[in-house]
Amino acid sequence: MIRNLARGVSAFTSNAFLVDGERTVLVDTGANFDIVPKIHEQVDELDAVVLTHTHPDHVGNIDAVRDVFDAETWGFDLDQPAVDNAIEDESTLRIGDDEYVVLHTPGHKNDHLCLYSESATTLFAGDLVFQNGGFGRTDLPEGDRELLIRSIDRLRSVVDDSLSAMHVGHGPSVVDSPYDHIEMAARAARLG
């Protein structure tokens, strides 16, 4: 089961998805709210934290999570203080009960990752793409619109219209034709 622990939080934060199962994983920690009791409401232990990228709104709660759950973090860039273990592009990672392929998708931030499970038909898109054709900002440090477009195109080449759920860094998850939202993001990113 996948639960957004940042749902209903009014502070500036990213979404933070708790995926329980064989390997209980938190995808991003969010920021500016106390996530620890929200995790404890659902599970007793946390096996790992996987970071889509290391912008402060996605990793702000990392120290609290590490302190209480003694969970190691996984991300793309070991030079980032929030990352304990590096994940290589195209490697696989167990999240919950499913295997996810890790896709390095820079453009919003150099260390950005998407996580895709073909068997679960589920994608964690971070801040690469959003509902209704939204896409990640490129006006922040490390932002690069052309690189973002290439990353969206790469994602489009890996997932297809069998995708049933896309969990994004901000806003609601997309469970109604999520592949169409990726297609819209690819077109929108080219326009502006």
Rank of each mutant, 00 (worst) to 15 (best):
Q131L: 14
V83S: 06
D77H: 00
K109Y: 14
H112A: 13
D77G: 01
Y116L: 04
Y116I: 02
H108R: 01
Q131R: 15
G96V: 03
N110C: 03
G134W: 12
L147E: 15
N110L: 12
V101A: 11
R66W: 12
S119W: 01
P106D: 03
A71G: 11
N132E: 15
D153M: 04
L93Y: 04
P56A: 08
D79T: 14
V59D: 13
T122I: 11
T52H: 13
Y116T: 03
I62F: 04
S157W: 02
R154G: 07
P81M: 09
Q80D: 15
H108E: 09
R137G: 11
G60W: 10
R145P: 01
D98N: 11
T122N: 07
G60A: 06
Q131N: 14
V159T: 06
R150T: 10
H55W: 13
I87Q: 13
D97E: 12
R66P: 06
E45W: 04
A82W: 04
E88V: 00
I95D: 04
D63Y: 01
A125S: 15
P141M: 04
P81I: 07
A86P: 09
I95T: 03
E72Q: 15
H58R: 04
L78W: 00
A125N: 09
D79R: 09
G133E: 11
V49F: 07
R156I: 09
D153Y: 00
L103G: 03
E72G: 14
F124D: 02
L123P: 12
G96K: 01
F124R: 09
Q42Y: 09
T138S: 08
G96R: 01
H104K: 07
A86D: 10
V159H: 11
P56I: 12
H58L: 06
Y100N: 10
L51N: 05
S162A: 13
T105W: 02
A48N: 02
G134Y: 12
V65P: 01
P141W: 08
V159L: 05
V83G: 07
F76K: 09
T122V: 13
N132S: 15
D57M: 10
I87P: 00
F130T: 05
D63R: 10
F69A: 06
T122S: 13
R154W: 07
A120D: 14
V129A: 13
L78E: 15
T73E: 10
Y116P: 09
D111A: 08
T54M: 00
L113W: 03
S162L: 06
G134K: 08
F135H: 15
R137K: 15
Q42D: 10
L113I: 11
D79V: 00
A71M: 12
G75D: 10
V49S: 08
L113N: 12
V102R: 01
L123D: 05
G75C: 09
D89F: 09
D77R: 04
I152F: 01
L148M: 15
F135L: 04
L128Q: 02
V49Y: 06
Y100G: 05
D144P: 05
D97M: 04
G133I: 05
